[in-house]
């Protein structure tokens, strides 16, 4: 029901850190099924499997309030992880399916849980993830909101 272009309009992550390709099921304020296909030649690094699941969770939380740009829409940050159990790695060419369930949403802080599967095999269980959205200026006071962080000229 959502493809990669739709997802780019909803969350601010971009390649090489955009790790959700599609959403096949979305029940507002309740649950979501998202997917990501591993490209390249390496297995998906363990922590990027968790990042990918977290991005799917962000789509569930923000599908009705798109946040494509951090400087104006706020910055998604992780607050806590609990009980994240890892199974076997997800291999190149495999599609991992993320199942996300919203436990509770308080203002801009979301509590979610779920699992990731490849076919019928569970490759990660997520006991609980706490994520929040913070204004860019609150995270980096030195960068005025709306002004991109520019590298020094070479």
């Amino acid at each position: 029901m959502l493809d990669r272009d739709d997802i780019r309009r909803l969350i601010p992550h971009r390649p090489p850190m955009l790790l959700v390709d599609g959403v096949s099921e979305l029940v507002p304020r309740s649950r979501l099924v998202g997917s990501y296909t591993v490209t390249g030649t390496r297995p998906l690094p363990t922590v990027l499997l968790l990042e990918s699941w977290g991005q799917a969770a962000l789509v569930l939380i923000r599908h009705d309030r798109p946040m494509p740009t951090v400087l104006t829409d706020g910055v998604p940050i992780a607050g806590a992880f609990e009980g994240i159990r890892f199974g076997r790695p997800v291999l190149p060419g495999e599609t991992v399916e993320h199942r996300v369930e919203l436990i509770r949403l308080i203002a801009d802080t979301g509590f979610v849980r779920g699992e990731s599967v490849v076919g019928t095999e569970v490759v990660m269980q997520v006991g609980r993830l706490v994520g929040a959205v913070r204004p860019a200026a609150a995270l980096r006071p030195a960068v005025p909101a709306g002004v991109p962080d520019v590298k020094e000229s070479t």
Binding site: M17, A78, R140
Partner: peptide, 17 residues
Amino acid sequence: AGHYPGFPLLPGVYIVE
């Protein structure tokens, strides 16, 4: 470049790694 455009922020999962 993608986390995030114009606002490089260390991914929380990198700390775990």
